[in-house]
Structures are given as C-alpha cells and as structure tokens.
C-alpha cells in the first residue's frame, strides 16, 4: 500500500503529478491510500511514501481531454475520496476508452455529481459575492473587497470571471478557502485561508431598499426563494436580514390591498382623459 498526502486545495497539477507516477509504475487503485495532508500528521511519523519509479515495460499512459476537464472540477471538491475516485477513473479509462460516455457507471456518476456540485458552488459565488468599497480611489482606481464562504476550493477557478467583469476596479475576494485579487495588471491567487474582514459600504442601504420594494407581498413563495438562495449564504448578504420581516408582514399587506376601497382619481387623470 502506498500512502500519499496531498494539500488538496483545488490544484490539479499536484494530484496529476502523483497520479501519473503511480500509473507509469503500474500501481493499481486498490494499492494507494490517498489522504488530505493536515498539518499535524507528520508529527506522528505518518510521512508520505516516496513515489515509485516508472515501469519501463509499460507504454506511456494517455488520457482523453474530457477526463482532464472533469478532473479539473472534481479536484476542487472537499470530498476526501476525490483523489482515489479520480485515480480509479484514470486507471479504468486506460482500458475502457468509452468510460466517460457511460454516465450510468457508478464511478462516472459519482464524478459527475461532484462536478455538478462544483459548478453550482462556482455559480453561487458569482451570484452572491458582494463587493464593498474600501475608502477613496487609489491611483485613479476604485477599490473593493468581498468576503465569501464557498463550500469547496473554487476561488481560483472562479476568479477569471471576476477579472473579466470588474476590469476597471481593484478588488480582492477573501474566503476561508483561499483568495483572489486584481489590480488592473495582475490576478493574484492564494490558497491560504483568510479571516472575515470588517467591511461597511453605505450603498448597501440603497440595495436593501431595492430588495424590499421589488418584492411582491401578494405572491409569497418562501420555499422557491430558499431552494435557490439557501440560508447558509444569508449571513454574508446585506439584504438577507430583511427577509423575516418581509415574510411576516406579507399577508397583512396583501389583505390591506384587497380590503381597501377604490379611491377617486386625482385631477390630472381627468385632465388627461378630457384630451382624448
């Protein structure tokens, strides 16, 4: 059994280098014990095993491009079994070239479930990051910062979206699973965890006004809201603490609209209608 520890913070190259060495040495998936390094393991003498040398009798392994695309997403998942799952798929795809086109295969189905979770997590990050302005502009550029809490290691793969969108401003997104920063020239990535900063932005007040008033109290559908915007995101959304009151007052507001007698129009209405 070969024991291998990876940092496991969404970096495909780290896993790929180890997997390639194992494959070229002909090590079957059942002979590898993949672990996520946690800082303390080494203290107890659980150091990694060295990677085995390549077996010269084996031809160089190849992988379909679709595998790399899949692996690039799956590796970002926090599930500790992701390294083993990907190595099992890599091993199998050497002999079963059509494997990835069989979505009902248990390994493929599992990998696609993880990939889907990553897509959703990244999509929610694009949706729910909230930038707050940090003081006056610096060297002609406005500066913004955001705190976000993703489920998985998706900051690096999602940062390009923010770079392409918020090109003309400086920004930094910090999370417990890494950070990304843009200064107009360079995108700087880190996989180190950050602490939640204190951020206040007065414009949040206008956004909260909009959120409260675009809501139609006559069509309460709380379940529909929560399935798309689960509560775990609420603590970092400036508008979310309005939700309980909006829900609680909705029925009274609707009753009020229904019970109210029709009113008499203002004079300008009659002036307009006379012109017709």
């Amino acid at each position: 059994m070969i024991r291998l520890g990876l940092r496991g913070r969404g970096d495909l190259a780290e896993w790929r280098d180890a997997a390639r060495a194992l494959l070229r040495a002909g090590v079957p998936p059942t002979d590898v014990d993949w672990r996520v390094q946690d800082g303390g393991a080494d203290l107890f003498g659980l150091a990694d095993d060295p990677l085995p040398p390549p077996d010269p009798s084996l031809s160089a392994p190849t992988v379909p491009a679709a595998f790399l695309t899949l692996a690039d997403a799956v590796i970002c998942h926090r599930d500790p079994s992701r390294f083993a799952l990907l190595y099992r798929l890599l091993w199998r795809v050497q002999g079963e070239r059509a494997l990835l086109s069989i979505p009902s295969d248990p390994d493929v189905a599992r990998a696609e479930t993880l990939e889907k979770a990553i897509r959703r997590d990244a999509h929610k990050m694009k949706a729910f990051v909230r930038f707050k302005e940090m003081g006056p502009p610096h060297a002609g550029r406005r500066r913004f910062a955001a705190w976000f809490e993703p489920d998985n290691y998706i900051v690096a793969r999602t940062s390009g979206f923010f770079q392409r969108r918020f090109t003309d401003m400086d920004w930094i997104i910090v999370t417990p699973k890494g950070s990304a920063a843009w200064d107009g020239q360079h995108l700087t990535l880190s996989d180190e965890p950050s602490q939640k900063p204190d951020l206040i932005d007065d414009t949040d007040d206008l956004w909260r006004t909009y959120f409260a008033h675009i809501f139609n109290p006559a069509r309460l559908k709380v379940q529909a809201m929560q399935s798309q915007m689960p509560k775990k995101y609420w603590k970092n959304l400036p508008e979310a603490d309005l939700i309980p009151d909006l829900i609680a007052s909705a029925e009274d507001r609707m009753r009020d609209m229904i019970d109210r007698e029709a009113t008499q129009p203002k004079p300008f209405h009659y002036r307009i209608r006379e012109r017709e």
Partner: peptide, 16 residues
C-alpha cells in the same frame, strides 16, 4: 461582462 448564462444575484421571498 455577459457570459451566456444569466445570474440571479438574489431571490425575493416571492421566489423571483
């Protein structure tokens, strides 16, 4: 930017 897929940045309690 617009990258094909629309993004819903929030949901109101009317589910919209």
């Amino acid at each position: 930017s617009t990258e094909g897929m629309g993004i819903c940045h929030a949901y109101a309690p009317d589910g919209r």
